[in-house]
Design a protein around this nucleic acid. Structure first.
Ligand code: DCP
Ligand code: MG
Ligand code: MG
Length: 800
DNA sequence: ATCCTCCCCTAC
DNA sequence: TAAGGTAGGGGAGGAT
């Protein structure tokens, strides 16, 4: 993501020098790469991508490496250090001729280490030699007796099996355990295909942590079961409800709006507390503080960060935890700049204030409020009876109007008709971003994403208000409570936006239905919502745009073409700045023009799926079905603001914090992952100072991935893996402007606890030879096996 | 053909 | 000063 190229205003961007946009001034996007927007886009595009592809192809080879020497000296937790010291002492002892005290337990054993192992290949070598075994640097069936391996990418596992020719592939714990027992243990329980559950027991993470305990790498937050905040539906009975109908685009589209007049401007007190969301077990997702509500920016907000509830690992426990060190104090102590350099708690603090983090993580919180949404209706489309006929389908899209502003402005009637925006800063020269602008402000051209200085330039009288994440959360909860109350098929899009499939209640007039829902939302939240109604999700969404603000709009089947003909292509969901620009260069700017292009041409130019999407959407065709949110495929965290490191140590420290964050999110969601991606934003050579204060500026986006065969959500393992990947970047820490960490190939943690062995066994046997398939379970009862595995878990933790 | 990695693009 | 996150879809190109 190259944020700087996103700037819609006309002031210079970080990359404006490198890439000049030859198209209209409205689209300065250049995707942060070299000038790809030249007039001969076709060839140039291909050339560019090819170049990048080759470059990355080369780099990507490092995504899995032979286990390097463990050079992570800086990362060593207490237990780790203890073990290392222990071995170091032994080694010292042996070199002084005490070797006779060590039993040659590995006599006759010759290992070959394949891939990234814990402990490292070098350490294993040391252990083997010390205890009478052999260590082979190269695989040879004649010499090697055991292959040692803890993590291998999928493809490698298959490979390994084919060339191992029946040699045991064993986890390194076998060696550690044997040393601990001072005798050669059977390797059978340590076979790679049995050791699926090499994670620390979940219970380890639930050990109660004192709220005042200082944070350290080996203590984990507790998941407190908090009482659920009731989302009381407060109805403002005195609110008036007026509806005005108007005709849009001929008869079959109607647009209705509400208007509300006087409301008592009851000020919420600006008390600071955690927003409480339903919590069932472990919530790792961040919480948000309530910013000074109802105050203009000028009044100091600096003290609010004292409030205790944060996303950090040390705050999950309690809502009354009074942070020992008031954050505001902290901040005044580090006035040097708001970067990773000044603040050891940067990640945590940053996320607390990030609006994008709030909307980005909202979905996870929603999923906890509405778990397992009616399981069925995802696939009902197949057996739908009435809704088989696309003409009959009726979709409602509903979206709150200028959500962030509307919520905060509820209690400020005087500002109702004045231009207002939500932003962290009111500095007329500042580069803080506008989060949301109300409709009066939009008249001046103020938009979300704009720098506040540009907004102020467009509208000097613009009033800036602070975020109130807690209130956003509450209103979103009320919003969805209402939707779910009235409709079974709800698909959440974001905290202020959803699709409803009302096909099955078609006997009920959708317009009336929408009106009632909007009314209830308004009476409950004192915020307005707009609704679009149409035969599919695409058209419903487009209808909502038409309906805003505070209105509703129905686009009948017959009206679709009429409506689309002159619609700018940018209005289609899925067409952003890049696609708009590319199409513009083909002289296509409306859906009508887009319809002229044959599907094959579009697919050739933009790819199979994208081409088809363009073709379909330009005609108002959309096959998607309203469905519940599926369980997420990936979980990650990234920070691309304020990231400045002076040396490698800084960057590793930061990375470590990010690992904690991601590990917590995985655990909070009850999943483990097998695929780990580290993303780094590297300042581009010759890049200027970022246009945005503390921004990442013009960067190269780098990413490397490692896939391992056993899923994990443990912070230590994650850290180890991430450090491994980080090493493969060979990057100067001073050049880093952003860091992101993503985990995918997720598995349910509970399931893998109970059935993981079977799952992995199935996976392995499906992918490989069945050697020894017979004895896997015959030797060990379920309980014994469990015990052994648990032992492994503990050892694994310690070894790390 | 199908998978995988490394991106880019999009939406909120 | 300021808090440019998150997740899914998908394309290019290489490996198998
Ligand atoms: N670039 C953006 C886009 C959105 N948001 C936040 C603030 C918005 O209030 C909220 C909902 O996004 P919408 O696109 O629904 O925008 P609004 O609700 O503000 O306005 P509209 O009336 O157009 O829906 O997400 C943000 O912080 N930054
Ligand atoms: Mg909205
Ligand atoms: Mg929205």
């Amino acid at each position: 993501m190259s944020f700087d190229s996103l700037s819609r205003s006309d002031n210079t961007t970080d990359s404006s020098k490198r890439s000049r946009c030859n198209s209209t001034s409205s689209n300065p996007w250049n995707n942060g790469q070299s000038s790809s927007h030249g007039s001969q886009k076709g060839k140039q595009k291909k050339a560019r991508q090819k170049t990048l592809g080759v470059a990355w192809g080369a780099n990507s080879r490092s995504s899995f490496q032979r286990s390097p020497f463990s050079d992570f000296g800086s990362y060593m937790d207490v237990k780790n250090r203890k073990l290392h010291n222990q071995f170091a002492a032994e080694a010292a002892g042996s070199s002084h001729g005490g070797s006779h005290t060590l039993k040659p337990i590995f006599h006759g054993v010759s290992i070959f280490v394949d891939g990234f192992t814990v402990p490292s290949s070098q350490d294993l070598r040391g252990y083997m030699l010390k205890y009478g075994g052999r260590f082979e640097n190269y695989f040879s069936r004649r010499h090697v007796t055991h292959i040692i391996c803890s993590n291998l990418p999928d493809s490698k596992v298959k490979n390994l099996r084919s060339f191992s020719g029946g040699l045991p592939v064993v986890k390194p714990q076998w060696i550690i355990d044997s040393i601990a027992a001072n005798k050669l243990l059977s390797w059978v329980p340590y076979e790679l295909n049995q050791v699926c559950d090499n994670q620390p027991k979940l219970s380890l993470f639930f050990a109660l942590k004192n709220a005042s305990a200082t944070e350290n790498a080996s203590s984990y937050p507790v998941c407190i079961v908090d009482d659920v905040a009731e989302t009381s539906l407060v109805c403002g009975k005195d609110e008036k409800y007026i509806e005005v109908s108007e005709t849009i685009e001929q008869r079959s589209m109607s647009n209705e709006r509400f208007e509300d007049d006087g409301r008592d401007g009851k000020m919420n007190n600006a008390s600071v507390h955690c927003y409480a969301a339903p919590i069932e077990s472990c919530r790792a997702e961040p919480t948000f503080m309530e910013a000074e509500q109802g105050t203009l920016f000028q009044e100091e907000v600096q003290d609010s960060p004292d409030e205790p509830c944060t996303s950090g690992s040390n705050h999950l426990l309690t809502k009354s935890n009074t942070g020992e060190v008031p954050r505001s104090l902290f901040r005044r102590k580090a006035p040097k700049g708001h970067s990773t350099l000044g603040d050891p708690n940067f990640v945590e603090n940053y996320f607390r204030f990030s609006r994008l983090h709030f909307i980005g993580t909202w979905r996870q919180r929603y999923q906890k409020r509405y778990p397992n949404t009616p399981v069925e209706f995802k696939s009902t489309s197949a057996k739908n009876t009435a809704s088989d006929d696309p003409h009959m389908t009726c979709i409602i899209h509903i979206d709150m109007d200028c959500f962030f502003v509307a919520v905060v402005i509820r209690d400020l009637p005087k500002l109702q008709d004045k231009p207002v925006a939500i932003c962290h800063s009111d500095n007329p020269k500042g580069t803080a971003e506008i989060s949301s602008a109300n409709y009066p402000a939009r008249e001046y051209g103020v938009e979300a994403g704009m720098f506040v200085k540009d907004a102020k330039a467009l509208c000097p009288r613009l009033t800036i208000l602070q975020y109130n994440f807690k209130a956003y959360e509450e209103v979103a909860d009320q919003f969805y409570d209402i939707l779910h109350k009235h409709c079974k098929k709800v698909q959440a899009v974001s905290c202020d936006e959803a699709f409803l499939d009302v096909t099955d209640s078609i006997e009920y007039d959708p317009q009336k239905f929408a009106k009632e829902i909007r009314k209830e939302i308004y009476e409950t939240t004192r915020c307005t919502a707009s609704v679009g109604i149409a035969g599919n999700m695409l058209m419903a969404r487009l209808a909502t745009r038409k309906a805003k603000p505070n209105g509703q709009c129905y686009i009948s089947y017959e009206m679709v073409n009429n409506y689309l003909h002159d619609l700018p292509i940018k209005s289609l969901p899925g067409i952003g700045y890049v696609l708009e620009d590319k199409l513009k260069q083909c002289n296509i700017s409306t859906c009508g023009q887009l319809q002229m292009i044959p599907k094959e041409s579009l697919q050739k130019e933009f790819g199979l799926k994208t081409g088809e999407m363009l073709w379909n959407f330009s005609r108002g065709i959309d096959d998607r079905v309203v469905g519940s949110i599926r369980e997420s495929k990936s979980i990650g965290a990234e920070v691309n603001w304020g990231v400045r490191f002076k040396d490698l140590k800084d960057s590793k420290q930061f990375l470590s914090n990010l690992c904690k964050e991601v590990s917590m999110r995985l655990q909070g969601n009850g999943v483990r992952g097998r695929k780990f991606t580290l993303k780094i934003k590297k300042r581009r050579k010759d890049a200027e100072e970022p246009a945005k204060y503390m921004g990442c500026g013009d960067c190269e986006n780098l990413s490397h991935t490692m896939t391992v065969p056993a899923a994990t959500n443990d912070v230590d393992v994650l850290h180890r893996i991430i450090m491994q990947i980080f090493g493969s970047f060979h990057i100067d820490a001073k050049e880093i402007r952003g860091v992101g960490l993503q985990v995918s190939k997720l598995e349910n943690a509970d399931a893998s606890k109970q059935d993981g062995r079977n799952i992995l066994k199935a996976w392995l046997s499906s992918a490989s030879i069945n050697w020894r398939a017979g004895d896997i379970n015959s030797h060990y009862s379920e309980k014994t096996h469990r015990g052994i595995l648990d032992l492994h878990c503990d050892l694994f933790l310690i070894i790390l």
